[in-house]
Every structure is written in C-alpha cells, then in structure tokens.
Write a protein that binds this DNA or RNA. Sequence first.
DNA 1: TTTAATGGTGTAATTTTCACACACTATCTT
DNA 2: AAGATAGTGTGTGAAAATTACACCATTAAA
Lengths: 231, 231
Amino acid sequence: MEAKLPSFDSVFSIDCVIFGFEAGELKILLIERNEEPFKDWLALPGYIVEQDESIDDAAERILYELTGLRDLHMQQFHTFGEVNRHPQGRVITVAYYALIRINGQKELRPITQYARKAFWHPVNELPKLAFDHSEIFKTAFNKIRRRLNYQPIAFELLPEKFTLTQLQSLYEAVENKKLDKRNFRKKMLSYGFLKELDEKQKGVSYRAAKLYKFDRRKYAKIFHNDMNMDK
Amino acid sequence: MEAKLPSFDSVFSIDCVIFGFEAGELKILLIERNEEPFKDWLALPGYIVEQDESIDDAAERILYELTGLRDLHMQQFHTFGEVNRHPQGRVITVAYYALIRINGQKELRPITQYARKAFWHPVNELPKLAFDHSEIFKTAFNKIRRRLNYQPIAFELLPEKFTLTQLQSLYEAVENKKLDKRNFRKKMLSYGFLKELDEKQKGVSYRAAKLYKFDRRKYAKIFHNDMNMDK
DNA sequence: TTTAATGGTGTAATTTTCACACACTATCTT
DNA sequence: AAGATAGTGTGTGAAAATTACACCATTAAA
C-alpha cells in the first residue's frame, strides 16, 4: 500500500448512549471516569477506535470494556466533530445508541481501569457530563423519541413478557405526556404484532394483568418494506 | 496540551450527496476524479478534513473546492467506517447531504485539480461510483425520501416561485409513484404554509399556472419545532 | 369484609384520507 | 378564426382513523 495519505494526529472515538427502562423511568448508562481529562466526572461510555477495527466493531468492544455489556444492537446516530471538543487534541467521535432491558440483575462491571464504575441514571436529572456528552445525550434522546413512533424500539426496553400498562408507561415516559388507556390499547392491539400469552403477572397485590410478547415475525410481515409504523 | 492521545495514521474525510431537481428528474452532483485511487472514475464530491477545522466547516470547504458551490445548508447523515473502504489506508468518512435548486445556470467548476469536472446526474441511472460511494448515495436517498414527508425539504429543491404541479412532480419523483392531483393540492394547501402569488407561469404554451411560494414564517408558526432538518 | 390498587372494556362524534371526472384557459397551428 | 393541444383547477361521498369519555372486575392485604 502506498503511503499517500496525509499523516495527522487525529483520533476517532466512539461514545455510547445506552437507554434502559426501569421502575417507570427511562435511564441511561454512565461511567465514572478514572483518567484525565475529566477524571472523576460522569461521562458516556466511550473510547478510542483502533486502526484495524471498523467503527461498528469498535463500538461493541468499547462498550464491553467499560461496562461489561455485550451483544447489544447499537445504532450509529451522529458524529461530533468540533475542533475543540476534546481538550487534548483533535478527536472526532461517532455516537451510537442502543436500547436494552435493564432486568435488575445484569451486572455492570468495567473491564478496564479507565472507568471506575458503570451505573444506570435517570434521564430526567442528569448532571453535567464530561466533554460534550450532555449534547450527545440530548441528540440521542431526540432521535429515539421520534423513532418510538415508527419503529418497534419500545420492545427492546421491556422484558420479553410485558403488560400493556408497562408498554404504555414507557411511551408516556419517552413522550412525557399521559395517554388514554383505552385508545392506547385499542391501537396497539390493532397492529396485530402483540401476542397475548396465557400467563399473568405475578407477585402483585392487585388484579394481575395479562402478559404480552412482541411478535417479530408478524411485525416484519405487516410492515415488510421499511419499518414504518406510522401513517 | 499534553500529547496523551495515540498517534495513528487515521484520516477523516467528508463526502457530499447534493440533490437537485430539474426537468422532473431528481439528480445528484458527481465529479470525475483526476487522482489515484479511482482516477477517472465518477465519485461523490469528497476529500480529507484538515486538523483545525470542524467537520461541518470541512464539508463546506470541500464541496466548494470540488464543485464551486457555496453556502448550501448541508446536513450530516451517516459515518462510514469500514476498515477497508479506502484502498490506501484507514479513512473514516462523514457523509453529508444537501438539497439545492439547480437553476440551469449555476456554474459548476472545480477549484482544485483533484476533480476534472463536476456535473449533475439523474439518480435513476447511476453508474458504479468510486470507493463505497454507491452505498453512501443509497443511504442518503433513503434518508431524504423519508424526510420529505415530515420536513419542508421539497422547497429547497424548487425555484422560489413554483407551481403546485412542479411540487407534485417532485414528490412523485422522490416517492416514485403517481399521486392524485386533487388530493395533493387539497392537502398541501390545507397546511397553510404556501403563499399564493399574484403571478402566473410564463412562456408556456398552455394555460399558465398560478405561482406559489413557501412561507417559512408560517411554517415555523404552525409546526413550532425548529426548521432544522435533523433530529 | 372492606379497602386499595390496578386491569379491562365500547360507543359515538370528529377528523382525515382516499377515490374519482370533467370543464376551463392559454397558446400554437393551419 | 377555428380547432387542436396540453396542462390547470375544482367538490363530494365513502371509508378509515382518531379522539373523548366512565365504570365494573379482580386480586391481595388489612
């Protein structure tokens, strides 16, 4: 290979905005940094891309190293390239998001020393984050807020078996407004991609709700072209 | 500034997908390359980002140098980071799109030697392009096709004063299907952001159509989200 | 058995979408 | 000046989707 390309001290990085839903609240995954710059600050999980890995691969690796999480389906959403966004030099960062089930028991455990810990934090009361991560988060949140209405992303945040009320409260959390219960149910069920199970909720001290499951096959059949849920 | 960042031979580039609309056809701007690799191939206008410019600034500069076009409102839409997308080394490219009025007379004239010429080409019969530019184009086209239905991007492609038939034929070109004239007009006018002018079309050999203008103020008032095309 | 908490259900009014056909007008041709 | 040509401009009814709205049912705990 000829070395015709210029050689700059330029660096690519990846930052991840990982959304989860727990106790009726939307949360994101943060780390506590253990290195300069911004040592001790809270930040999005993020690090530098190696030369011989694609950015998609890098995103997976970096998230794993900082949080112990693996095999999520991450999605690139924006690239941030202001000259001074990193105090130590030119770093362009490609930002990814993913939506996952928190599940209470999934252990978060940084593999590298670069992060001291990783934990879930509600999106409503986020502190100031390192670098331009607050802006990155805002962009991500706007993206998923829109996407919720035409892509089946809600089901990635809920347990595999969920009640209609849980589904509704997720929509309410993301859109930040109350929805009408009857209309919400009617509409969701009318799509035809929710499979009613024979099971009921357990361990609640009130009437147990039916459990449902998202049926990916039916969904794909119904919206076979692009994943268009609206209109 | 401490030099803590690793020093890789990694390069950022920008590629631009510039859409225009002329004679009922959707077109994009291509260049003929004058340098290896892919010398003599057709490609999207694109080049390498300098160290001291933001990626948005770089996009403007690069488009200007390769095509002579300036001051378009470009929008980042995806970053391509496969390891081997560039035969000479690691190059991650941030892709932008813009929609502009072709206007027949806008001169296209590369400033650098890097492109031999720049010209409009219909999107329907695109040849194979250099690098992964065919894929980049496809991604861009899908983006604007969706966006057309919830953002006022059509008006950037039309002359300032246009007829409803022109507007309709643009929608038909992008969505690739015929629309009903009466319903289309009724719907467009019902939004309330088209301003009917006192002028008529000129120089046509049939009944002249009324001209309309897109009223940005009214649009902003009605859909009080900001007018920018991302999110 | 009562209470507290949430689950589950239907109908009517309104709005939006869609399908559909013909007369009008400006220009060009002969 | 008469006719041909080509695109402009308009309304209605049917069907579908959206909204507003209130009460009884079930479970567990007190």
